[in-house]
Write a protein that binds this DNA or RNA. Sequence first.
DNA 1: CTTTTTGACACCTACGTGCAAACC
DNA 2: CAGGTTTGCACGTAGGTGTCAAAA
Lengths: 637, 637
Amino acid sequence: MRDPVFTGTAMAYHPFHAHRPTDFPMSAFLAAAQPSFFPALSLPPGALTKPLPDHTLSGAAEAGLHPALSHHHHHQAAHLRSLKTLEPEEEVDDDPKVTLEAKDLWDQFHKLGTEMVITKSGRRMFPPFKVRINGLDKKAKYILLMDIVAADDCRYKFHNSRWMVAGKADPEMPKRMYIHPDSPATGEQWMAKPVAFHKLKLTNNISDKHGFTILNSMHKYQPRFHIVRANDILKLPYSTFRTYVFPETDFVAVTAYQNDKITQLKIDNNPFAKGFRDTGNGRREKRKQLTLPSLRMYEDQCKTDREGADSDASSGEPTPGRSPLGPSSSPLRFGRPDRDLKLCSDSDADQDLQDDPCPHSPAPEPLGREKDPAEGRHARKDETESPAHFGPGHLQSLALSGLQGLHGQQFFNPLGAGSPLLFHPGQFAMGPGAFSAMGMGHLLASVSGAGGLDNGSLSAQLTAQAAGGGNPFPFHLSQHMLASQGIPMPTFGGLFPYPYTYMAAAAAAASASALPATSSAAGSLSRNPFLTGSRPRLRFNPYQLPVSIPSSSLLTSNSLPGGSSLNPGSESSKSGSRETSPAPEQQHHHNNNHKTPRVGSPKAHLKDSLNELQNIQRLVSGLEGQREPSPSRDSPK
Amino acid sequence: MRDPVFTGTAMAYHPFHAHRPTDFPMSAFLAAAQPSFFPALSLPPGALTKPLPDHTLSGAAEAGLHPALSHHHHHQAAHLRSLKTLEPEEEVDDDPKVTLEAKDLWDQFHKLGTEMVITKSGRRMFPPFKVRINGLDKKAKYILLMDIVAADDCRYKFHNSRWMVAGKADPEMPKRMYIHPDSPATGEQWMAKPVAFHKLKLTNNISDKHGFTILNSMHKYQPRFHIVRANDILKLPYSTFRTYVFPETDFVAVTAYQNDKITQLKIDNNPFAKGFRDTGNGRREKRKQLTLPSLRMYEDQCKTDREGADSDASSGEPTPGRSPLGPSSSPLRFGRPDRDLKLCSDSDADQDLQDDPCPHSPAPEPLGREKDPAEGRHARKDETESPAHFGPGHLQSLALSGLQGLHGQQFFNPLGAGSPLLFHPGQFAMGPGAFSAMGMGHLLASVSGAGGLDNGSLSAQLTAQAAGGGNPFPFHLSQHMLASQGIPMPTFGGLFPYPYTYMAAAAAAASASALPATSSAAGSLSRNPFLTGSRPRLRFNPYQLPVSIPSSSLLTSNSLPGGSSLNPGSESSKSGSRETSPAPEQQHHHNNNHKTPRVGSPKAHLKDSLNELQNIQRLVSGLEGQREPSPSRDSPK
DNA sequence: CTTTTTGACACCTACGTGCAAACC
DNA sequence: CAGGTTTGCACGTAGGTGTCAAAA
């Protein structure tokens, strides 16, 4: 039981054996639906036909797993095996490689300390979050999701041209899982072109009824991408999540831009902000001309991309376009270093005053990527420089450092827990009664309202779903919310396990290409736990707890690429690394998060297993604690 | 075997019994997916457990049928029963009432002879086609569709301020069935707000790859609305279609407006054309000020409607709004009669020259609603005037005259026919292997590309579907096509049976409210066969044959509301009047439509049975027959 | 020569952006 | 006051409309 998390989670929460019968009160459809619920696990084709011995299955599974994963963590593999045996539905024959689109653009922003404006009415992310996927099973169906979680538990302020920690984080609103509107779709479909999530909107309106992702201004966040092999959202709660994190996509939510360079970068690259560009004829003064040579790159690329059409388009971005890591632009060359940007690193003495320095996070982490405070314009952009480029802090906190992706994970179903769960049935195909029942209590599907029903259709659908079928399913979203996007997640921690993370080879390679932020790739590639296989996968809390959690316990648990295994009181700060076995003691740290009804499972052992999971997760990496799966309340009859 | 059609069709095409095994090559997922394929189903809770005798089922079915239906036509009921036995999935417990939104606006256009511009790039319909639905089973899932079929087989020309027949129709391109993007959704969802189909686009580009509806310029068309109770598009081919036709929505496709009044009406009501309005400050001259008093009505209403949000919105219409039949505007009052519009009726001597008068259609049918030829500007707009207002010809040709809806019908699946069938799997939930296999050869689903994958996602999905799963399913649509909308239908006639039509009570009532076009409603309400119950349902060809079909044979097969069973050679130009009862003989008229594979049934007796059904339906009056309640599949245990 | 079709335009409706001033 | 937030604004993109002249 080295990995109580996995084992316990998988076993304990697996609804099929213990709960399915009760969880799925559905009748006629139930039978049909049930198969999908099996979280199971990726059996290679043919595996189903002949029951393989446990070891055989595991072997197959491992084969499908990322090398790093399978290599060092047999116990984990074993868990997977057991799951597989139980649930043949999900197969592991796919080995998704995910690369961030427009990585170079993201890197440019990341160097400056990306800022994302959040407004009452909802705002898109500018560098659009897009990923290119490979290695999926062409014929299998997948649901792609994205969410944005707190990167740490600090509040920031932009002072003296740099971001500094300004205290402990404010309580986080429940985060929503944004389900790509095209979900579910086949692997072939998803791989056909970059998958865009531009429909996801950010807001600071805690009363948002659109389903937008609610963030706290002046706080740092980390977008995450998830791949779930499932035929429909109903199965989401019981499915394995593969989570990918791109450190270069983290950002500070703001209501107004703080760093002029960020503003300029946005203006220069966002087609919708063309009106603010100082095009030849000096209409727009005001902005210092700090346009980097490569700035236009993105835009140009967009044009080429247009042909291919991005998924999740709809009324999407005007001229998004993929970011060409390869062809159009050089691997990552900054014409010139950023000028006046200052960075605040722990080492940096310049900190004015950290009102209430983040208690938990070891190093508040400077948002800017530059090492020294004052050296604004001398870049340290070369790729090989590595360590300096990493924002030690934020990546660490996420326990993502070099990680590109999380590995397949069992989704914990809060049996009976009854966390609010929202769906957008309309877009996904589910049997009439599919939505009903099902104990899933915390998964939400959101789809772009644009493509769906005119105005309230989506919401109507939801309501209808909720109302109809007499299913116990809890529908808490307003129509509006559903219509637009997002599904509320239980506020804290995790309903979603987001178990392991692993370094996606492709992503790593991309990183290696040139960006300072990701510079670790080239230089630290060898150091990357995942790549080397020695490192455990990091695990981070999907949903940050509002309360203070010793940062140590939360994040740094894993050694960051650039860093060391810091962490809490713990040894296994290298949560990310799978190789080391999680220390038992860490588990209790999680307990501190009393707030989150982890398991909510009536059964004591379930709970225990949950805690174990949590502990493991913490150890694994610290990012996010997941919630325990309490028996989903909705479970129908 | 009175109704060989149904029986045969159902039997022959039902994939489950004969084909499923072979049709679904999917392996692992197949098992999970299969359940959904079972069309069957909808057994009432508990029904599944105990197999009921055939009669039992039938009895139940009848109970669910519309009173009128079950009352007079036992043989039909029997047929339905047999079908039910085969496919319990569809239930008849719902009794949908459909009313056309913005009917008053439609009527205004109809009076003038609606014109719809078709362009190479695709054009929306302006009075947006929207319907308000009631009477659905809240919990059941429905797929809503729309298509546009030729209203007759004539070519028109606008001469001397009026539309005249100018020969026989050109060959029609295969029509596409536009599936509402929100499909499938629950009855509750659909009933929550008006369902808009503004995403459907018209084009004259025979090479269109977007899936737009391809029409012939200068030809008349009739939009149709269909309700199918089905959980997913896979079942469409085996499901019962309830078809509704609103005569006031017919139109002539044009590449350039012919009637200035139509142009002005469009300008005055379409928000996107505001730039052409001569608002006070005479910017826009050019247009004669013939804005009718009630013109702005629509626009204003749109605003109010905005709140409710129309379904199928997405990037939809700017300010569509519903058309208030009741409150906002008076029942239909034209401030002044249309001035310079001339109408061309058979009786009208003004016809310049009908190059090649429609051979088949009895009366070419003047598009304008005015009775006399020369009396262009003296309105005959009062509502009670009735007969004159109806465009005798066009309605007749469609055999729709007063009809508002068609009754539930079995969808005939051309077994092995392999008509091109397109789906948009992404939006609908279907098991992994769902799309695959299935012998369905002619159904298509189209969804708005906007809401879906960015650009090519949808198409990708389709391709993927086609490619994946190794299913035999024929995918002929290009990605682009799929992405946007529309699914090609077999060119002529009927893959879709679109069996009967009936007068929707609600619609009738609405008609009665005031419009001249529908003026018959008030005055002729009592006369309406459907309302009276004496009239049979009309049946018209879903897809007009390109070649000439005696108009008589095509439509009028049933007695039209207004008139007599005119048709073919025909007499009854007053297609509008609904009152008279359909004469039995009319049935054989249908047979004349050899072209339209009504039943698509090879079996002669099937055909006969169809006729019977039609007759029965006519008698029933109308309101739609419900399908028999098959055990509701969704019913949870 | 007539009738129909095409395509560039100007004008709108949406809505994505950052700005700047107002607001707190 | 100071920093964060809100709001209306001007300016883009995207795309729906009819116009009009030119093409077919």
